[in-house]
């Protein structure tokens, strides 16, 4: 049982939840994630550890509501408990001083990007961050990101905030302007696909953090498999970060829809039941 000690909505779809998990808080590094199972009947879903407080013994998750489990999690209140929470999982991000890093976060991918940006900055890199979302109200963690970025660019599809355009427009501008040594992209799979194509054009080594469907998160089931460089990899134990230029994003995009019909049905059942 892991008690929720704090909760805050960043937007009507994105919520920050701070939950007790003293051991995980101590053991986690940037890039790690946890698997959460809300209750007896719940499914297991992966969520990145956005930050941790060793003293308080808590970790922070940032959750975007997309289906039943994320909605039910967002509906929990301070004082409620999550039945099962396990981690930290995955390989931690490899952090070193490389020079200039271009960090790109789309949508809820900004949350997992935060600890990486922080670590990269602390390792002595010059960090340029691009945050992208459809509109102003979906931009999250702006101040926290700014604290660890030498430069912060915001892109919105509708131009309601920052510059109008896609994440890739912002990225191209930077790479035209100066030499970038490394890029890290986290966001929806489509965004990562195009961000990766963009950095490839400029020959910038790029890491993407993949958000595949998972069950156990310990390498036991293979639900999370992706093709990287022509080889099958398990995101939960070999990743979640991979050389973006080697990832078969098209296959990953298809696989993300494996349970789409079933999930949509249960989502509408859930929403109808609530009314």
């Amino acid at each position: 049982m892991n008690k929720i000690v704090d909760k805050e909505f960043f937007s009507d779809k994105v919520v920050r939840i701070e939950v007790e998990a003293p051991r995980i808080a101590k053991a986690r590094k940037a890039g790690h994630f946890v698997i959460v199972k809300l209750d007896e009947k719940g499914e297991r879903i992966p969520l990145t550890i956005a930050s941790a407080d060793i003293v308080k013994g808590t970790i922070t998750l940032v959750v975007q509501t997309v289906g039943v489990t994320s909605r039910r999690l967002a509906a929990l209140n301070i004082g409620d408990s999550i039945r099962d929470l396990v981690g930290p999982l995955g390989e931690a991000t490899h952090i070193e001083k490389v020079g200039t890093v271009l960090a790109c976060g789309g949508g809820v991918g900004v949350a997992p990007l935060l600890p990486i940006v922080e670590a990269l900055k602390k390792a002595g890199n010059r960090v340029i961050t691009v945050l992208a979302a459809r509109s102003k109200d979906l931009i999250i963690l702006e101040d926290q990101m700014r604290a660890y970025s030498d430069e912060l660019i915001i892109m919105t599809d509708d131009g309601s905030y920052g510059q109008k355009g896609l994440v890739t427009d912002g990225m191209s501008k930077i790479m035209e302007r100066e030499t970038v040594h490394l890029s890290v992209v986290i966001g929806p799979a489509v965004m990562m696909k195009f961000a990766s194509l963009t950095t490839k054009k400029y020959n910038v080594p790029t890491y993407a953090s993949l958000n595949t469907i998972m069950v156990d998160g310990t390498g036991m089931c293979g639900a999370c498999r992706v093709t990287v460089g022509g080889k099958t990899k398990f995101v939960c134990i070999d990743g979640p970060e991979f050389d973006a230029h080697q990832v078969d994003f098209d296959e990953m995009l298809l696989r993300l829809n494996a349970y789409k019909e079933v999930e949509l049905k249960s989502e509408s059942d859930y929403l109808n039941a609530k009314i």
């Binding site: 009947k41 039943v68 069950v215 089931c221 293979g222 349970y259 079933v262 249960s266």
Partner: peptide, 22 residues
């Protein structure tokens, strides 16, 4: 492992649970 885990551990065939199964 995935197939059996979904059904045995996650009880996916039960309509009252959240885990999907094809």
């Amino acid at each position: 492992n995935e197939y059996l885990t979904r059904v045995n551990l996650m009880d996916a065939a039960n309509v009252n649970t959240d885990t999907p199964i094809l």
